[in-house]
């Protein structure tokens, strides 16, 4: 149990997806103009990461790795489909995002309206595929990868809401014209990243 809490804290703060690994930057910069939309996108990312990480883990362990297909026939023991990984993971992510979109539309039209365009955009958010790929390189098991997904999503949520709040305040300050908008967002992200790097020394 303590192990799982460690993974959550590590993926949310110490190894923050956005501020340490710079994944999901595109939507992070584009959708952080107001806090309201940032909260919507952040919630959608937590949701999708929490589902895709464990499902991709199940698919990889049961279909792709060497020996996983041995239950069909002993001669399949030597098959290794890991080279198909990227295509399958992105396919699973695209299909799941579509599915999540339909489920939310059916059961909670209010949430669906508030998430709007962000849900389909999540398919090409680097942090989702990044979550799956990191989970593989770190060799987590099923429970750990689920917690890792939730933790990474929470880290993204935290970063995007913080940036949106700062940018809302920035509108009242006198930034040099060429630096307005994107340039300033980059520099603020850099400063936030520096602050988060202070957590790197924590051993979990």
């Amino acid at each position: 149990m303590g192990d799982l809490i460690n993974i959550f804290v590590k993926s949310a703060f110490v190894e923050n997806m956005v501020l340490i690994y710079f994944l999901g930057m595109c939507s992070y910069l584009a959708v952080s103009k107001t806090v309201k939309t940032a909260v919507g996108l952040g919630a959608a990312v937590i949701f999708v990461l929490a589902i895709t990480a464990p499902i991709n883990w199940i698919i990889r362990e049961n279909l792709l790795v060497e020996g996983a297909l041995g239950w069909i026939h002993p001669s399949f023991e030597t098959l290794n489909f890991e080279f198909l990984g990227l295509i399958i993971y992105i396919g699973v992510i695209a299909a799941l995002v579509q599915l999540v979109e339909m489920v939310i539309e059916k059961f909670s039209p209010a949430l669906y309206m508030s998430l709007g365009i962000f849900l389909p955009l999540i398919t090409v958010n680097c942090s989702i595929l990044g979550g799956t790929l990191f989970m593989i390189t770190k060799e987590y098991n099923l429970a750990q990868s689920a917690v890792f997904g939730i933790g990474s999503g929470f880290g993204f949520f935290l970063a995007i809401v913080a940036l949106a709040a700062i940018r809302e305040k920035l509108r009242y300050s006198n930034v040099p014209a060429p630096l307005r908008g994107l340039g300033m967002a980059f520099i603020i992200t850099g400063l936030m990243g520096l602050a988060f790097m202070g957590l790197m020394g924590i051993k979990l």
Binding site: P176, P178, L179, L182, G183, F186, I187, T189, G190
Partner: peptide
């Protein structure tokens, strides 16, 4: 790299 990119955009 994030600071450098910010400065490139500025220039």
């Amino acid at each position: 790299s994030i600071f450098i990119l910010g400065i490139i955009i500025w220039i």
